[in-house]
Computed example of a mutant assay.
Amino acid sequence: MSANVHPFERLSPQRIVEAVESLGMWLPGEPFTLNSYENRVFMVSDDERRRWVVKFYRPERWTDAQIQEEHDFLFELDEAGVSVGVPWRSETGDSLHHTEGFRFALFAQVVGQAPELEKPADLFALGEVLGQVHAVGKQRDFRYRRTLDPDAMVQESRTQVLGSRWMNARQRRAYERISQELHEALRQRGWPQSWNLRVHGDCHIGNILGRDERFSLVDFDDSVMAPAVQDLWMLLTAQSDPEAHMQLAEIIEGYEQHLDFDRRQLEWVEPLRSLRLVRHSAWLAARWDDPAFPRAFPWVAEEGYWDDHIRTLEQQRHALEQAPRWIAGLDTGF
């Protein structure tokens, strides 16, 4: 096989089935591909009609110790009664498995729908489950997984994007300027290390499933040491201030059924949004050698994408200059 073939291209249906069956299961049908780019994720059914999600981790992204630490956090949460997607363990207690150079894990399917972020009851329920997660997360620190570091992450992202081949000279100058301005704005803020705890890390509605106002969190692949607000801010989607304050109030009320929330962290909602915007384009550039990315995101190679991205970063820089909208109108508790 050519050295230029991406490792994930070797994940044929037969290999996937053989990997799962090496754990002692029998799969009567073929795997169904689920929507995932960072890793490769498939739905499979065994001979007892149980549905499983099998995740093949991206080679060289995490160490075995980092993945195992993610799994161990999930086991802690499950033991504490928190609703999360927990990896299957073999009779020897192993949750991380190896096959032909890949690491993979098996999860029982979590059924349900994404929450509706316009519904107060859903927001309250989301706040509750996040408060439960963080109450466990604060009990100890990660040893191997990363700590969220906006300064380092923006610098790494800028280097990745500026090293790509897509932008023309005008765009490159504009991107270099605006990304540097955002970098400086984030540097000037900083957060106390005392705010850091184990969090989900990528808490958007695609990683939340449930029904009847009971939700489960799945995919802790980006679990990290970070402030609690890292798991809250992506749920704040409203455009008008009254709706925004409703969202935040419901989430915090649910959250504080289990753990107090330091309102000073709300100053980081827009900075964290800035960080995600900068990291997203860098992620696309870094993963372009994976054939799934050009197929799924062809517009990244087009000039218009980078004009739009630079314009979005300009708008975000202006948002950072404004007074934090999430604090105005909310009882800060101080």
Rank of each mutant, 00 (worst) to 15 (best):
V54Q: 09
P227C: 05
R214C: 12
C203D: 02
Y144Q: 12
R58H: 12
S194C: 00
V84D: 07
L162N: 01
H204N: 03
G24N: 12
A228M: 02
R143V: 15
E213C: 04
I67R: 10
G329W: 01
Q113H: 07
A169K: 03
P242I: 06
F75R: 14
T92N: 12
V5F: 03
D212H: 11
H134W: 01
R10Y: 15
E116F: 01
D149I: 11
E184A: 04
Y255F: 09
Q316P: 00
K55M: 06
H98L: 13
G85A: 15
Q139C: 09
I205L: 03
Q193Y: 06
D222R: 05
D47T: 07
E69R: 05
V161M: 08
T312W: 07
E250H: 04
T332V: 10
N4P: 00
G137D: 08
R165G: 01
P242L: 02
T159C: 06
D122R: 04
A152V: 11
G29W: 02
E118R: 11
L126K: 03
D64F: 00
R177L: 11
N168I: 07
L106V: 12
I178L: 07
Y255R: 02
R325I: 06
Q113N: 09
D151N: 05
V229A: 05
R10H: 15
S36P: 00
R165Y: 04
R170K: 08
D262C: 08
L126G: 07
R158C: 06
R158A: 03
S157D: 05
M167I: 07
W306D: 08
M246P: 04
L284G: 09
V224T: 10
A292P: 00
H318A: 13
D212A: 10
F124R: 12
W283T: 12
Q257Y: 03
F124G: 01
R51K: 13
L162H: 01
M25L: 15
H258D: 02
S223K: 01
A328S: 14
R287W: 13
H258G: 02
V229P: 05
C203W: 00
P59Q: 05
N35H: 12
V111Y: 06
P324C: 13
D141C: 11
S274A: 13
L284K: 06
W306T: 10
R325V: 09
P31R: 05
R140H: 11
